[in-house]
Design a protein around this nucleic acid. Structure first.
Lengths: 237, 237
DNA sequence: CGTTGTGTTGAAAAAGATCAACATGTGTGG
DNA sequence: CCACACATGTTGATCTTTTTCAACACAACG
């Protein structure tokens, strides 16, 4: 399979722009040879509390990050405070890859989070030493773009309810079992991700509950009762 | 400069997702050695009439394209026909890079267009033969993501007038001189790019005209009379 | 010279935002 | 362990923006 076809399936549940899923051996046994995860070798592990900032838009961008555990949000702000969440990141996703001298968005921990920090300088060295890595990163970045397109379609052309249905389905695609899915982020996070207000998100959930498409469980979990109907509502994506 | 910092300036006027500006010697004299533009060597030149399809979402994706001349639109459709334009491409931009087995969006010529067609198979060979190309493509793809983020902010959080102002400013950034900028695409194209209706776009233009921020010239050209005010309206981007 | 497509403008309708109140839930300190 | 305080979420009423529906102007084209 070519580097480009490898980028095929956009099975990440959110664009998480500039984020990327790279096969990671984190948590697994280190039975693979060193070259299997060259990034891990030069990574520094960091832990962030819930709701803490990892970096902010405009700061010098001297590192990229890979999420080991937890959920992170990436977002951009307008001068007057309006916020657009670019993506939610989960284990395996990367962020900071597409940057200039400075970060072009902010990153915060939604839940308590563990990340690997890879300095830009070291990454550049690694890219020189191991040209195949560039192709892997290309493949990964490319699949982010695919997800980004879907999100543009969602933001520009879908109704509130369609956005919600799309969001829940995308989430559930990430969770392996089709059991209940976790919603670690707040209504306000969801709203800023879908281009809505918290009230509209809340009303949407209520409507989906009333129509028996979903059920809210303890711990902020959601069960998708009628995946079929949700897919119809979501208009594909 | 590293491959990543090279991706810095998102000076493309539209995300044009999965499109990418790669330095091209098209139109210039071939005084550079063959390796300067390896893609040109394996490209096949094709010409498309105004409003003609180049490829459609879902078709087998066996080639990528680079625009030599003209303007192209990339878009996705919802089952009921709602359209979201992902980006407008101009000379130097690439499309089709981020794909699976099939194209994930459609491409049509807005104006009469000349493109270079590079077959996937040949591109893959070239990537094997010349690993540095992957790094260039990574840099280019990465800058697309940056533009994509801005578009997500625009679609999710900006008002109609802010969207229009942002669009005009982005366009003008592409046009070197700050003279009049060409608007080869229809109101309906602009609407589908900004997540609006044609009527709202039209009213927006009228308002900008009335407030002396722009002036409509012959041949669908627009002159930005008050770049300052437009920038304020656009809220940055 | 009519026809067709594109753009503009107006009036009515709808979706979503805003403002406001209240409910629920969580965490803290007493 | 309880009571309170503060966060977050839900619901209702109203308002605004944008869409929708409709008419018309205008230009390009056959």
């Amino acid at each position: 399979m070519s580097a480009l076809t490898a980028a095929a399936q956009p099975n990440r549940f959110v664009p998480g722009y500039l984020a990327a899923s790279l096969p990671s051996s984190i948590g697994g046994m280190a039975k693979v040879q060193r070259s299997a995860d060259p990034l891990a070798a030069i990574a520094q592990v960091k832990v962030y509390d819930r709701e803490h900032a990892i970096f902010a838009e405009g700061e010098a961008a001297d590192a990229i990050f890979r999420v080991v555990d937890g959920v992170i949000r990436l977002y951009k702000l307008l001068p007057d405070g309006r916020r657009q969440i670019i993506g939610f990141l989960q284990a395996g996703d990367m962020m900071g890859l597409a940057f200039a001298e400075r970060y072009l968005y902010s990153a915060e921990a939604v839940t308590a989070t563990t990340v690997q920090r890879i300095s830009r300088a070291q990454l550049d060295d690694l890219l020189d030493a191991q040209p195949s890595l560039a192709r892997k990163l290309l493949s990964v970045t490319t699949s982010e773009l695919v997800a980004a397109q879907d999100q543009m379609l969602l933001l520009g052309r879908k109704t509130a309810l369609e956005k919600l249905a799309s969001f829940l389905l995308a989430l559930s695609r990430r969770t392996d079992g089709n059991r209940a899915i976790a919603l670690p982020m707040s209504r306000s996070d969801i709203a800023d991700y879908l281009g809505l207000t918290t009230e509209t998100v809340s009303r949407g959930f209520t409507k989906l509950k009333t129509n028996r498409l979903i059920r809210i469980l303890d711990g902020g979990k959601v069960e998708l009762l009628d995946r079929e109907a949700l897919a119809e509502l979501a208009e594909c994506a």
